[in-house]
């Protein structure tokens, strides 16, 4: 039943956006999240389901370069915009400097938080190429890690910052 018969009302939505550099199109409903759409329709497994209420950060995606909670972001809001996940940064043959640094500094143990951590770190380095340790800690304070104790993650991000790399 329609609550308002108007051109402004829609139930099924076709949403087009750029995912890791290539154009994609999905069918979604009003409150389907970016997280659900990425995992269930676009086979992006790096974006994880954690708390599903914005606390843990494992569903982090970059929307036009800025970190967002995939679980709290309605998919239709991504229309015409660019979403980046770790799949868009590098792969096993060609790691992104942050991916390499996480590997070298043992910054990933179970790996569940790693994609979100790396994307959050990337957005920090993109807007502040030489962050202080304090800035790094503040930036990742919204991404929970239950394995590492964070020190190795902070060291990994620091090492990339010192190379001036992204």
């Amino acid at each position: 039943m329609s609550v308002a018969t108007t051109p402004a009302a829609q139930t099924e939505l076709v949403v087009s956006f750029t995912l890791n550099g290539r154009p994609v199109q999905v069918r979604t409903r009003a409150l389907d999240s970016v997280l659900a759409v990425l995992r269930e329709q676009l086979q992006i497994g790096s974006v994880r389901v954690g708390c599903n209420e914005g606390d843990c950060g494992v569903c982090t995606v970059l929307l036009d370069g800025e970190p967002h909670r995939g679980c709290l972001l309605p998919a239709f809001v991504a229309e015409g915009r660019e979403i980046t996940t770790v799949e868009g940064l590098g792969d096993v043959n060609q790691l992104h400097p942050l991916q390499r640094a996480f590997h070298e500094h043992f910054a990933s143990q179970c790996g569940f938080c790693t994609p979100g951590m790396i994307l959050t770190a990337k957005s920090l380095l993109d807007r502040s190429p030489a962050p202080s340790r304090e800035e790094i800690v503040a930036a990742i304070s919204g991404n929970l890690c239950r394995c590492t104790g964070y020190r190795s993650i902070i060291r990994a991000i620091e090492s990339v910052a010192q190379q001036g790399g992204r």
Binding site: S2, T6, A8, Q10, T11, R29, A30, L31, F76
Partner: peptide, 9 residues
Amino acid sequence: ANIELLRPR
């Protein structure tokens, strides 16, 4: 049920 999305401008 489908949720209707209203998008006022």
